[in-house]
């Protein structure tokens, strides 16, 4: 089974690497933006996986760090466009700040949230992300409810041009690989062992003498920083920054991706993000197609209401396929995986 699993994952990563070439060859540039979104959300889901899958901390507020990261780009653009501060468009600066600011925010939010356990933690991370959401809605200057359209993207000088979809795609791909490598090194380090150990038995680790609170907090901060980088990419991909990215439903979507792909596995969130966006893209068409095959009339409706199938599908995955896609690849089916 392991061979199938590694083969499949290698195949997915290789296929992802070939997307811009194939999309250009068949003249469907739309696929580049769809797959860029997949890579971006794969990074975000991987960052969530560090705390959720490996650390057992159910953060229901990761959309906030995604949003903070994209607002770094948005605010930089705003001042460059309106106040003539050209340096504010510098891509390297954006990249650095999208790591620092969401990372610090995650440290602050984590410092309070990690004092609590279980359901409290879920609800508090949720509430803090809503707080940031309303904060940005209140900031009329940076667009408030309407968001900001970005006329200029992050500027990397002669190194790369993000206006070129393929270059943006490979930047996202490179960052995803880098993030996966960092996460791989992290979870297998002594630090990662403590975080994972605190998931299965925190009391025992504390008795051994590890200050688990600090370890968990650092993991939470790293996770926020990585998620911020995904926000940086998302802003440059959609050329738009708005509060809707920070809405709590997106935090839920990220959790779904992690669980759909397989919690606590390195490539699970990548598979989950790809699977989630595939479902979002093709479930409507699939439902419409099935409707035609069974001979129903007015099949347009079936496609329009795809979430009525998606919701219960989610419940079924939770109930019967806990290991997610990665679990299926390992041949584990059922609830206790």
């Amino acid at each position: 089974m392991q061979m199938i699993r590694f083969g499949f994952i290698a195949l997915v990563m290789l296929a992802l690497a070939a997307v811009p070439a194939v999309a250009t060859a068949i003249d469907e540039p739309f696929y580049i933006s769809l797959f860029t979104r997949m890579l971006v959300l794969a990074i975000a889901a991987s960052s969530l996986n560090l705390v959720l899958g490996y650390g057992g901390m159910v953060s229901f507020g990761h959309a906030a760090y995604l949003g903070l990261g994209s607002y770094v780009v948005g605010v930089g653009f705003y001042h460059a466009a309106n106040d003539g501060m050209d340096w504010a468009l510098n891509g390297w600066l954006h990249l650095a700040l999208t790591i620092i600011i969401p990372g610090l925010a995650a440290l602050l939010i984590g410092a309070i949230s990690l004092r609590t356990r279980g359901v409290y933690f879920i609800m508090i991370t949720l509430a803090f992300s809503q707080m940031l959401y309303y904060f940005f809605i209140g900031l009329e200057r940076y667009g408030g409810d309407d968001g900001l359209s970005l006329w200029y993207l992050s500027d990397f000088g002669s190194v790369m041009d993000l206006n070129d979809d393929s270059q943006l795609y490979y930047l996202a791909y490179g960052l995803l690989v880098l993030v996966l490598f960092i996460l791989y090194r992290l979870v297998n380090s002594r630090f990662g062992m403590v975080v994972r150990g605190a998931k299965s038995n925190e009391r025992r680790l504390m008795a051994v003498g590890f200050p688990t609170y600090r370890y968990r907090l650092v993991a939470f901060g790293i996770s926020g920083a990585i998620c911020g980088v995904a926000g940086f990419l998302m802003a440059n991909q959609s050329e738009f920054v708005s509060t809707s990215e920070m809405h709590w439903v997106h935090s839920g979507d990220l959790i779904v991706m992690v669980v759909l792909g397989g919690m606590g596995t390195l490539f699970g969130p990548v598979l989950g993000a790809v699977g989630f966006l595939m479902l979002e893209q093709y479930l409507p068409e699939l439902m419409e197609g099935i409707c035609h095959i069974i001979g129903g009339n007015s099949c347009g409706i079936a496609g329009e209401y795809w979430k009525m199938v998606f919701g219960p599908l989610l419940i079924l995955i939770v109930l019967f396929a806990r290991g997610g896609i990665d679990g299926l690849l390992q041949g584990k089916v059922g609830r206790n995986v």
Partner: peptide
């Protein structure tokens, strides 16, 4: 565990929103 409950009831929200729209 609570994560399962969060996910399943999140699915319920999607379902209810679409049902009401329908």
């Amino acid at each position: 565990d609570h994560l399962d409950q969060v996910l399943a009831t999140f699915g319920l929200i999607l379902f209810f929103n679409e049902l009401v729209r329908l």
